[in-house]
Design a protein around this nucleic acid. Structure first.
Length: 824
DNA sequence: TTTTTCTGCTTACCA
DNA sequence: ACTGGTAAGCAGAAAAAA
DNA sequence: TCTTCCAAGACTGCAACA
């Protein structure tokens, strides 16, 4: 039974109704006397307030073959749970129109028991729809409400006493305000340091020794070990317990809308929560005096009532991952890429020593504060995107932050359904799911390039290829193979799309695409503050639009459609190959193409005629599909695959006219490749792309090889890093990184799935896996020179050098020979 | 028995 | 748990050569 | 069983935190 937060007061009298503006911040619900009350946390005139609302009830839909059974459903009562009311509604599922009974219940907890009663006892029961939508989401989606938006409310004094720390009122009515002013939420970032000397991090034994808080008005590191001359941002507490209680007090005082941390779901907040319990500290920042709620075992989620907790790492990991150019998603790496700022150097051994010997902890404190500062700065960039994604998909920011692409899309579709009187199609049964998981389909087209050095490359690409295909051909689960007056045939045999009526998915996508174009226009004339929000909004629109097509092929959804999915990629292949043919016919040479891009050389023709040809192609493309000019590149390299003469796909490098180089697929941008190999490859690419003479390239290569032989390269550059994808025991073959992982484990360190294993290849042993050593096991120069020259340097440059007629293999053999000659 | 070639596992990229 | 397409290293097996 | 909630699965995905 839930702790009772509400109490009825003895009196009841006429209460005046008040009107106000309200910013919605958080949403939860509570139960009282078998009734459900939504708890809307937000601000009225800047003051955090809780509003109780009893006019929204959970519901689901029931399909019956005999309408008269509706009366029986209306009477259902089981203990505390009962059906409040019912109503008949016309709804469409995919393309079938149905009359469905919407069944309202007294509380969300009633959904499960009442559902099973209907299943068991109602004879004409056919199907239940949308019973899996959680109550909070239902409320937001149905009203198209979202966090951090402004509302006009009518409210009155609450009839009930509550133990809330904030004022509490009864909400009479709520509507979204016509005028929406940009609301800048107040953010507070948190970071903790623990005394973790072993390999495991254990809240049972190891205390929290530092906590830092960072917001616009507070930047402090808290600790309880006093020392001489503390920096002014350090605040001393009496004990760990006092420190945690002080932190809680600060959080309340700060009265922030959002609290952020980096991996704070998995680490900081659960640690604080557990630690507070162990040392008996009071840590109850919630508005109902609740503490941090941690749910989930392996994937923890931490919640504080009334303050939206956003774990920046979770969002970066789940949604921004692909757009972040970094090998790792650690705070250090992400800050470097997104902020251009560094984490402080950390030597935990010396930190812990200083802690034990009561020496100065200023460096430790500064390190701690810098982490929450970085998190705060990241929040400034990222939180607007989370908020906009939440608004777009009617998810609380808390959910949007932790959602996968599929959840964002699903929720967005759920929100839009009412515009089409549609319901989410039911989820697949077990057997259907299995079938879907086994089915795959052909994807995109990739052009086989000819290896070589190219000059003056023109690159064109489709703006949102798949979304525009969907819109332009009306691809939707309810239009596929539907008998119709007008239809478009899919390139897939026996599949067509009805054009009689706009489909739901094309309708939604078109809206997203149009909205984004509109925002892009607005951005040009916006001020900085608006720009941040508009940028976040267009990012959200793009994210959801791009993920929507993949939803057709995602087995775990009711929107799954094999025919739609394979038709979309088939259309993509069709258009891109047709355009390639047209360009070739017009006398241009096509160098490369992958999915939605085309690389063209003029081949003696005029630039103007190429652009005219593209214009012509564009007029012939259907609907909103459009090929754009991406840019002109002065030089480019395409290589052959290993051991063949045929061009390699997905590996090339381009240099734009301003000298910027973009590299795709090559070792330079792969993390499981040594720094030395990557560095040399990048340097050679640069030299060749900027047309340096061959002898310069050769002398550079020679230089590097001699240095490696002379063991003059730092070990650091020899480290190869590979991620362990599964437990060591599950590997069928003992690859080098698996061997390294074994050594790591033997050394008593973590080698679990997900760990990035670093190793250096040293001289002993036959197989490479036998030669592997951990970096800390190696002295400077311990590396196997032959391995690095033959397996890291040579393969990384061989194919590239080949393009300008340099035989890297011969060159390296020659260098080796001559250095041996010199030696003897 | 040694060397070369092939295959499957694996990682990490491109779109 | 949005999708498919691709390169390439390495281990270990199979095939070919010595 | 997850120290709570409705679904539904039950297992592995990934990689971060000191």
């Amino acid at each position: 039974m839930k702790a009772q937060t509400l109490k009825e007061t003895a009196y009841s009298q006429k209460k005046p109704t008040m009107k106000s503006k309200f910013i919605l911040l958080d949403l939860d619900y509570t139960e009282f006397n078998n009734r459900v009350y939504l708890e809307l946390t937000g601000r009225i005139n800047g003051k955090k307030t809780v509003l109780l609302y009893d006019k929204f009830l959970p519901y689901f839909y029931v399909e019956l073959s005999d309408e008269s059974d509706a009366d029986r459903i209306k009477q259902i009562k089981e203990g505390d749970f009962y059906v409040v009311s019912t109503e008949w509604l016309e709804k469409t599922i995919i393309s079938e129109e149905k009359k469905l009974l919407r069944v309202y219940l007294n509380t969300p907890r009633a959904v499960k028991p009442i559902k099973s009663i209907i299943r068991k006892e109602i004879k004409s029961f056919v199907q239940i729809y949308e019973a899996n939508i959680v109550f909070i989401k239902r409320f937001l989606v149905d009203n198209s409400f979202s966090m951090f938006s402004q509302y006009d409310i009518e409210y009155e004094k609450s009839e009930m006493e509550s133990n809330y720390t904030q004022p509490c009122f009864f909400l009479k009515s709520i509507i979204l305000s016509k005028e929406q002013q940009a609301y800048s939420p107040k953010v507070l970032s948190i970071d903790i340091e623990t005394l973790s000397e072993g390999e495991e991090i254990n809240p049972e034994k190891e205390p929290i020794i530092f906590v830092s808080l960072y917001s616009q008005s507070l930047q402090k590191a808290f600790t309880y070990q006093k020392y001489e001359n503390p920096e002014n941002f350090v605040e001393f507490c009496q004990s760990e317990k006092a420190m945690l209680e002080r932190i809680c007090e600060c959080i309340k005082e700060q009265d922030a809308d959002i609290i952020t941390g980096y991996f704070s779901d998995g680490f900081d907040l659960p640690y604080i929560s557990k630690r507070a319990r162990i040392i008996n500290a009071s840590f109850q920042p919630g508005y109902d005096n609740s503490g941090i709620r941690v749910t989930g075992s392996s994937f923890k989620v931490a919640k504080i009532k009334g303050i939206t907790h956003l774990d920046i790492y979770r969002f970066i990991r789940g949604i921004m991952n692909a757009s972040i150019d970094s090998d790792s998603l650690s705070l250090a790496a992400v800050s470097r890429v997104l902020l251009g700022e560094e984490k402080h150097e950390a030597d935990f051994d010396s930190f812990f020593k200083a802690w034990k010997n009561q020496e100065s902890l200023n460096r430790f404190a500064a390190y701690n504060l810098q982490d929450s500062r970085l998190c705060y700065l990241l929040s400034e960039k990222i939180v607007p995107s989370i908020i906009e994604l939440g608004k777009l998909s009617s998810l609380p920011a808390f959910q949007a932050c932790r959602s996968s692409f599929s959840m964002l899309v699903e929720s967005h579709l759920l929100k839009r359904e009412k515009e089409f009187s549609m319901l989410s199609p039911p989820l697949p049964e077990e057997s259907e799911l299995r079938k879907r998981q086994r089915t795959s389909f052909e994807g995109a087209f990739v052009y086989q390039p000819s290896p070589g050095f190219y000059e003056s490359l023109y690159v064109f690409d489709f703006r949102s290829l798949y979304p525009t295909i969907i819109v332009s051909h009306n691809i939707s689960p309810e239009t596929v193979n539907r008998s119709s007056k007008k239809k478009i045939d899919s390139p897939v045999e026996g599949v067509w799309f009805s054009q009689d009526k706009e489909g739901f998915i094309p309708y939604v996508l078109k809206d997203l695409i149009d909205a984004r174009a509109e925002i892009k226009r607005k951005i040009a004339s916006a001020d900085d503050r608006e720009k941040t929000i508009l940028n976040a909004r267009q990012y959200a629109l793009k994210t959801v639009a791009n993920a929507t097509w993949g939803f057709f092929a995602y087995p775990l959804t009711g929107w799954y459609s094999y025919d739609c999915a394979r038709s979309i990629t088939a259309f993509g292949r069709h258009y891109i190959t047709t355009i390639i043919d047209k360009l070739k016919k017009a006398g241009f040479s096509v160098i490369y193409s992958d999915t939605d891009s085309i690389f063209v050389c003029l081949d003696g023709k005029e630039e103007k005629s190429l652009m005219q040809e593209i214009d012509k192609i564009n007029t012939e493309l259907p609907g909103i599909m459009e090929l754009n000019f991406e840019g002109k590149f002065s030089t480019g390299i395409f290589v052959s695959t290993k051991g063949t003469m045929t061009g390699a796909k997905k590996r090339y490098a381009l240099m734009s006219q301003d000298g910027a180089i973009s590299v795709k697929g090559f070792e330079t941008i792969r993390r499981n490749w040594s720094e030395i190999g990557k560095e040399v490859q990048m340097k050679v690419l640069e030299m060749i792309l900027s047309k340096k003479p061959n002898n310069e390239v050769e002398s550079y290569i020679k230089d590097v090889v001699v240095k490696i032989r002379a063991k003059k390269i730092e070990n650091r550059k020899m480290i190869i890093t590979t991620q362990l994808k599964k437990p060591i025991s599950e590997y069928e073959s003992r690859a080098p990184h698996v061997a390294a992982a074994e050594r790591l484990r033997e050394a008593g360190k973590r080698a679990a799935p997900g760990t990035i294993i670093s190793y250096i290849v040293c001289s002993e042993g036959k197989k490479i896996a036998d030669k592997v050593r951990l970096p800390e096991e190696c002295e400077q120069g311990d590396y196997d020179t032959d391995y690095y020259i033959n397996n890291q340097i040579l393969p990384s440059i061989e194919k590239i050098a080949d393009v300008v007629g340099i035989n890297a293999k011969e060159l390296i053999t020659k260098i080796t020979q001559s250095s041996l000659d010199k030696f003897f």
